[in-house]
């Protein structure tokens, strides 16, 4: 997504401070020298004193727009930004969005949630489950080409065999 173009001796330091991951294909060029900007890219020319601001800017760029979902639990209706959900799961034909300590009944079908959150780093791991990649704490391979996902709320979610390849593809393995 990003390309950092600074002096070679400063490259690593600035990259670490920006918490930046460079990729071969990129849309954004980050540089402290306007002469290094590229015409067909989005160029962010910064002064090194503004690195922390740039870092926050990058957070916004990566997060994109906030997407809110409305759900209910025993305490009433809640409006929650999608990245707070660990995963969505179908139970008795109802879709629940699982948060850190609670889960919300979502008045949508799972495929509708999937469609809604397509660009938000969510991935289907089974017919009944949609997982937030950012909330996966650890991946344990199981027998029969299945994966057991330990979520950050310490719940376990299984990646079914049929979704295994897609899951790996998403992680770019």
């Amino acid at each position: 997504m990003f390309r950092l173009k600074v002096k070679e001796e400063e490259h690593k330091r600035i990259k670490d401070r920006l918490n930046l991951i460079e990729t071969p294909k990129y849309e954004y060029v980050l540089t402290d020298d306007k002469d290094l900007s590229e015409n067909d890219k989005i160029n962010i020319v910064f002064n090194q004193t503004d690195i922390s601001k740039i870092s926050k800017l990058l957070d916004i760029i990566v997060r994109g727009e906030d997407t809110y979902l409305i759900g209910n639990n025993e305490f009433g209706q809640k409006r929650v930004e999608c990245r707070n959900f660990h995963y969505f799961i179908v139970e008795d034909e109802d879709v629940y969005g699982v948060l850190n300590n609670t889960k919300l009944l979502i008045r949508l079908k799972l495929y509708e949630v999937d469609e809604l959150l397509k660009s938000k780093d969510f991935i289907r791991v089974s017919k009944y489950c949609l997982v937030n990649i950012g909330k996966i704490a650890y991946i344990k391979p199981e027998l029969n080409s299945k994966l057991n996902l330990l979520m950050k709320n310490e719940n376990h979610v299984e990646v079914n065999r049929g979704y295994y390849k897609e899951f790996k593809k998403t992680l770019k393995i």
């Binding site: 918490n19 990058l58 991946i139 344990k140 998403t170």
Partner: peptide, 29 residues
């Protein structure tokens, strides 16, 4: 095989989290 897969998968997950600008602190890894 399990160990190999696990290491590869979690390494990829870590990279993905970095791309997502999420700090991952996996306990007990």
């Amino acid at each position: 095989t399990k160990l190999f897969n696990e290491v590869i998968l979690n390494k990829a997950l870590k990279v993905r989290h970095q791309q997502m600008r999420i700090s991952t602190v996996a306990k007990g890894i």
